[in-house]
């Protein structure tokens, strides 16, 4: 299990290689990378709640480890000012089979988006800045996991 909140960029290949090398039983590594959508903006600034952010991410990761038979999981979230196209977030999981890995990766992102204390502020091309509004679709995406029947609970 690994959770990191940092200003620096991350090396996707190195992170995925490390997950794959955790355990000889790992047969699947699934990852999601979030990028700064660049149309109409010149910068994206990520604010967070130091201390609570790490706790929230660790809790989300622990919940995924409990729900799916995972050999490992990595969550890296960047903060500070990011340029269009920059990587914001990496979520990656390792398991024996792809089914659990795909589901767990999606679960981690859905919960991260609704539970981890990060806030995005966009700077537009005319220099004005606005806080990004939370999306109802993110809440409904997270809510569907509450009653999710886990078909991969065998270890």
């Amino acid at each position: 299990m690994a959770v990191r909140v940092q200003e620096a960029d991350f090396d996707i290949a190195a992170e995925l290689d490390a997950l794959g090398a955790l355990d000889p039983d790992v047969g699947a590594v699934v990852s999601f990378t979030g990028l700064v959508r660049g149309s109409g903006i010149t910068a994206m600034t990520l604010e967070h709640y130091p201390g609570m952010t790490e706790k929230a991410l660790e809790a989300i990761e622990a919940e995924a480890m409990g729900r799916w038979p995972l050999q490992g999981a990595t969550i890296i979230h960047r903060v500070g000012e990011l340029a269009p196209g920059a990587r914001i977030v990496l979520v990656a999981v390792a398991s024996r089979h792809r089914g659990a890995a795909f589901e767990a990766a999606e679960f981690l992102m859905d919960y991260l988006k609704t539970r981890a204390p990060f806030w995005k502020k966009e700077t537009a091309e005319d220099g004005t800045a606005r806080w990004v509004d939370a999306r109802e679709t993110d809440t409904s995406a997270a809510d569907r996991w509450a009653n999710h029947k886990n078909a991969h609970s065998h270890r």
């Binding site: 979030g34 990520l46 967070h48 709640y49 609570m52 979230h77 914001i88 977030v89 992102m109 991260l112 988006k113 609704t114 539970r115 981890a116 204390p117 990060f118 806030w119 995005k120 806080w131 990004v132 509004d133 939370a134 993110d138």
Partner: peptide, 10 residues
């Protein structure tokens, strides 16, 4: 105690 708008990370 922390007060904040709905989160928008990811």
């Amino acid at each position: 105690v922390a007060l904040f708008p709905p989160v928008t990370g990811g």
